[in-house]
């Protein structure tokens, strides 16, 4: 167990380092824009006096590395500065939005991950049957269609024609949990459809890949039933690739939902990011990017650790 702990610490350290590199990239990418932030915010009509004043206000006269350092130390403490447009703290602007996005992502994940893995097991068991082919075609169709298109199709059939679910996923401040689930069902379903195919196909491939192993033949020759061969003998050895794909898709659920949020007018981080880019609200853009990067790094770290923990050779050293 000690080895695993060391490995996790090492990966965690690497993750922090990666995040640091990304923060540099994010910060200086904004610096690289023609002109500076003040110019970008004020646009072409800016007078030199206005510019000078705004630069003074934003502290742009200080050299970039110093500002980066200030920004970074602030970010580590959760202070991402103030919005250029509204003047609110970035943290308090993003906070509730991030919670909404996380809610939607977990909602979709709770449905998609078990469903995808179960379906993957079923198609592995019934491989090369009509069920396998149909499941493959359907999930591939879902993943190949753009999210906004899927979203509109769902709105058309499940909201406009039947009226089962609301087309606009507004989750009010006082809505209770079940109402929130009901209201945000359509965006969640859209995302489920988008991420299912990868996970299901990887589960299927990882399991089938193992079916030629001698220990699977041994299990069959011991008279183990087919479902148990798959679930008990193949699946425990197939976790590593499955966990990796699940982690990537979970990250996508958080960072890649911009279009879905826009289609369903869902108040999440994605929509905030789009707005901030349009309005050149750079502190918010930087903070969002940093959060997305951290999400990717953390989930991949979790996937690595998960893959290690499912490997008996590492869990039980000699």
């Amino acid at each position: 167990m000690n080895d695993v702990f060391k490995l996790v610490l090492k990966r965690l350290g690497l993750g922090v380092l990666t995040l640091l590199v990304i923060s540099v990239l994010i910060f200086f990418a904004v610096e690289l824009l023609p002109g500076d932030i003040a110019q970008a915010v004020l646009g072409q009509s800016a007078t030199p006096e206005n510019l000078a004043a705004l630069r003074e206000q934003l502290g742009l006269n200080v050299p970039a590395p110093v500002r980066y350092f200030h920004w970074l130390t602030g970010a580590i403490q959760g202070d991402f500065g103030t919005s250029l447009i509204t003047g609110d703290r970035v943290g308090s602007t993003i906070g509730p939005r991030l919670l909404n996005t996380l809610f939607l992502a977990s909602y979709a994940a709770v449905i998609a991950v078990p469903a995808a893995i179960l379906l993957g097991i079923f198609v592995a068991l019934l491989r090369n049957t009509i069920f396998d082919r149909v499941a493959n075609v359907l999930t591939l169709t879902a993943i190949s269609s753009p999210e906004f298109f899927l979203g509109y199709i769902l709105i058309l059939y499940l909201a406009v024609k039947t009226g089962w679910f609301p087309a606009i996923a507004s989750i009010g401040r006082n809505a209770d949990f079940s109402t929130m689930l009901y209201n945000s069902f359509l965006p969640a379903l859209t995302m489920v459809l988008v991420v299912m195919a990868h996970m299901m196909r990887m589960t299927r491939a990882a399991i089938i890949n193992l079916l030629a192993s001698p220990y699977i033949e041994m299990a069959r020759l011991k008279g183990v039933p087919a479902w148990r061969v798959i679930v008990h003998h193949a699946l425990p050895n197939a976790w590593a690739p499955i966990i990796n794909v699940v982690a990537l898709n979970l990250a996508y659920l958080i960072t890649g939902v911009v279009l879905v949020e826009v289609v369903f007018v869902y108040p999440g981080v994605g929509q905030l990011l789009v707005d901030a880019v349009a309005k050149r609200d750079f502190p918010i853009v930087q903070a969002c990017c940093l959060i997305f990067a951290a999400t990717f790094i953390l989930l991949n770290l979790a996937a690595d650790v998960g893959a290690i923990l499912t490997n008996p050779r590492l869990r039980h050293p000699k």
Partner: peptide, 30 residues
């Protein structure tokens, strides 16, 4: 019949034991 009345011993035991389970659990499975 398999496992109960006819059993099989494979060439490579290292490859024919499932790496994910304890030896005795595989033994008692049948």
């Amino acid at each position: 019949l398999r496992g109960a009345r006819i059993a099989y011993v494979a060439q490579s035991a290292a490859a024919s034991f499932n790496p994910a389970h304890r030896i005795i659990d595989q033994h008692t499975e049948a």
